[in-house]
């Protein structure tokens, strides 16, 4: 007992010392780029894209321009909420998202600066928002992933609208992701609110909610469902990881006929109004949209679609020109209050 009494305070002192040493090395992460004036040759990028892809973009951009990108990775919605809470004191110069919804939300909150029109002119205009406040620098398409052991491709529903029919009960998986919200949004515009709500209730009753697109893929691959609704690239990522498409049980079905199940969704890039590095940020945006710049990285490092004409993906995906998606304003997605309300009403989320 007496030994521990003398040892107590001494070990406490040692601990305190350790803490001071540790803490002193602590502020190293806070060297804020961009805060030290307009001449700064670095940008802070908040990115909802996969970190590997963003790092590849950063490395290529730095090599060409000498400008460093400090990447802060997260998921789309987390980062967008963060920027909204930061308000006009955001640390971000540029934001990259996976889906159009979240960046449209920033646009609606008035936090994005105009993108240079010469930059916007480089990409496929179908995917650009009408506001012109963000850049569609990559795209993904909604598909059906199916397991041929359970269902053949020609047995699949012709349209996602059929899925509210009892015929499909218990046979498919879905995930109430951002892309799903977009689909709902599009449906409200095309078939009206009442029919959309009915459809959502049907989905809730018939489908299995796998929560995430990645799990839709994995569960269809495992044979738990005949098919599932997801974004195309999840499947191609898995295929490359497993050493080829033949290593997988499941297959991709592209939905034709301008169906709501075949929407093409843009990944967005925007410059924050509050950024003190407007010029450098616009320089990055221009590079991101350039056929010899960022678009090459998109083509090489991810199964997402490059959005500049003439750049083709290194993945064996169906070319963008051969898809038959419905057209809509990607920027209108922030006005999805109705979609959200309906999804809550139908009990999907």
């Amino acid at each position: 007992m007496s030994r521990s009494r003398t040892r107590g305070p001494r070990s406490l002192a040692a601990l305190m010392l350790a803490v001071v040493v540790v803490a002193s090395g602590c502020s190293s992460g806070s060297k804020g780029a961009g805060s030290d004036g307009t001449k700064s040759k670095s940008l802070v990028v908040y990115s909802g894209q996969h970190e590997d892809l963003t790092q590849a973009l950063a490395a290529a951009f730095e090599k060409e321009s000498g400008i460093t990108l400090e990447v802060r990775s997260g998921d789309d919605a987390g980062l967008v909420n963060q920027i909204i809470e930061e308000g006009d004191r955001s640390k971000a110069d540029v934001v990259l998202t996976e889906e159009p919804g979240p960046i449209a939300q920033l646009d609606a909150a008035g936090l994005l600066a105009k993108v240079d029109s010469s930059t916007l002119a480089k990409v496929d205009s179908r995917f650009s928002p009408k506001s012109g406040n963000w850049l569609a620098w990559a795209a993904r398409v909604r598909v059906m992933l199916y397991n041929p052991n359970l269902i053949s491709e020609d047995e699949l529903p012709k349209s996602v609208l059929e899925l509210s029919d009892p015929e499909w009960k218990g046979r498919f998986a879905y995930a109430p992701s951002g892309a799903f919200v977009t689909t709902v949004n599009y449906l409200i515009d095309s078939i009206g609110e009442d029919k959309t709500l009915e459809w959502l209730k049907g989905i809730k009753a018939n489908g299995v909610n796998e929560q995430k697109n990645g799990k839709v893929r994995d569960s269809v691959e495992a044979g738990q469902h005949e098919f599932g609704l997801a974004n195309h690239y999840y499947w191609y990522i898995l295929a490359r990881e497993k050493g080829g498409e033949d290593a997988l049980q499941s297959r991709v079905h592209y939905v034709d006929g301008k169906d709501a199940g075949g929407l093409v969704l843009a990944s967005g890039a925007g410059v924050l109004k509050s950024s003190k590095n407007q010029e450098t940020a616009q320089q990055f945006m221009a590079w991101l949209a350039d056929r010899d710049g960022g678009q090459q990285i998109v083509a090489k490092d991810t199964p997402q679609y490059p959005t500049v004409d003439g750049v083709t993906s290194s993945y064996d995906i169906r070319p963008l020109s051969e898809l038959d998606p419905p057209e809509f304003d990607q920027g209108s997605l922030s006005e999805g209050a109705k979609a959200k309300e309906l999804m809550v009403k139908a009990g999907l989320i």
């Binding site: 998921d75 789309d76 919605a77 987390g78 967008v80 909420n81 909204i84 919804g101 979240p102 939300q105 109430p176 992701s177 951002g178 799903f180 919200v181 922030s334 999805g336 959200k340 999804m343 809550v344 989320i349």
Partner: peptide, 15 residues
């Protein structure tokens, strides 16, 4: 899970 889904998937931080 509903709180997080509303904040992240739906983008309705108020909800």
């Amino acid at each position: 899970t509903a709180v997080v889904a509303r904040a992240t998937v739906l983008g309705s931080p108020e909800a």
